[in-house]
Simulated scan of single mutants.
Amino acid sequence: MNYTEEITNYYARLEKTIESLDKEALNQVMNLLQDAYKKESRIYVCGNGGSASTASHLMNDFNKGLSYDQEKKWHVVSLNDNVATLMAISNDDSYDKVFSKQLEGNITKDDILLAISGSGNSKNIIEAVKEAQKVGAKVVGMTGYDGGKLYQMSDFNMHVPINDMQITEDIHLTFNHMMMSVFYKKVANEK
């Protein structure tokens, strides 16, 4: 089999989508996150499936990659990473509440919820957004497709305008790496 045409087409679509991103919206999110860093606020992050791994990856890159050997640390919490808690909430309440129940009583108005959903319609993500909104925390939606409910409910958006989950998730991961790279150069050692 020769897959070169399909490979070329995939990367062409990826490149075209990257070119169409709203860079000013990304800049606004980065300023919001930098402000949270300065205030030592928490940034809660969550997602399902591939987006769960993006949430974990982002937490790792910010808490280790950007914080390692730095006097001032980032405070990123992935709501995906305690399996026992996820299973207990799923079992005792419902999967729709796995993130909102973790935020309840913990998230404050000075914190940020970075919610990741390719479709923008994941029920547990929407419930988490509602919980964050109860206390006045800012919500950043990381979405694809038309953005769904999450796009509409978010204060800030990191949107990938394509109806393709794989390219959406590819670009979501590049958001993480782009932010880490820029913050490492611009924010590390900032007093």
Score class of each variant (00 low, 15 high):
160 V>N: 01
85 T>G: 00
85 T>F: 12
90 S>G: 15
64 K>E: 08
15 E>Y: 07
42 R>D: 00
141 G>H: 11
173 L>G: 01
46 C>Q: 07
77 V>D: 07
150 L>N: 05
59 M>I: 07
63 N>G: 08
131 E>I: 08
120 G>V: 06
6 E>F: 10
145 Y>K: 05
89 I>N: 02
26 L>P: 00
7 I>F: 13
162 I>A: 03
71 E>A: 13
97 K>E: 13
9 N>E: 14
109 K>V: 09
171 I>Y: 03
124 N>H: 12
105 G>C: 11
15 E>I: 02
111 D>G: 08
71 E>S: 14
126 I>E: 06
178 M>N: 02
92 D>K: 08
161 P>V: 04
53 S>M: 12
184 Y>M: 03
141 G>Y: 06
72 K>M: 08
129 V>W: 09
8 T>K: 15
138 K>L: 07
157 N>F: 00
64 K>H: 08
190 E>W: 01
23 K>N: 08
166 Q>F: 03
147 G>V: 05
58 L>D: 01
134 K>V: 14
59 M>D: 03
31 N>V: 11
148 G>I: 06
5 E>A: 07
65 G>Q: 04
97 K>D: 09
94 S>M: 12
105 G>V: 13
111 D>I: 11
110 D>Q: 13
64 K>G: 03
123 K>N: 14
131 E>K: 15
5 E>N: 13
183 F>N: 03
42 R>T: 05
76 V>G: 01
55 A>D: 10
113 L>V: 13
49 G>H: 07
88 A>R: 05
70 Q>N: 11
185 K>F: 02
136 G>S: 10
154 S>H: 05
2 N>T: 06
64 K>A: 06
167 I>Q: 01
186 K>S: 11
180 M>C: 15
84 A>K: 09
164 D>R: 01
25 A>T: 09
78 S>R: 04
91 N>I: 03
138 K>N: 14
144 G>Y: 02
106 N>F: 12
53 S>I: 11
10 Y>A: 02
67 S>L: 11
60 N>Y: 10
13 R>T: 04
30 M>A: 13
101 K>F: 01
24 E>T: 14
86 L>C: 10
185 K>S: 10
146 D>H: 06
191 K>F: 04
52 A>F: 11
51 S>E: 02
25 A>V: 10
119 S>A: 04
33 L>N: 03
37 Y>L: 10
190 E>A: 06
87 M>H: 04
77 V>L: 03
82 N>C: 09
27 N>F: 14
174 T>W: 04
134 K>S: 08
43 I>Q: 10
132 A>T: 06
128 A>C: 08
135 V>E: 09
78 S>Y: 01
158 M>K: 00
21 L>T: 04
121 N>H: 06
36 A>Q: 09
3 Y>F: 15
104 E>G: 03
19 E>P: 00
61 D>A: 06
125 I>E: 06
162 I>F: 01
139 V>K: 13
57 H>V: 10
146 D>A: 10
170 D>C: 03
74 W>H: 05
187 V>E: 05
3 Y>V: 10
48 N>I: 05
157 N>P: 01
165 M>G: 07
17 T>V: 08
177 H>D: 00
32 L>F: 12
110 D>S: 13
15 E>D: 08
34 Q>L: 07
186 K>Q: 15
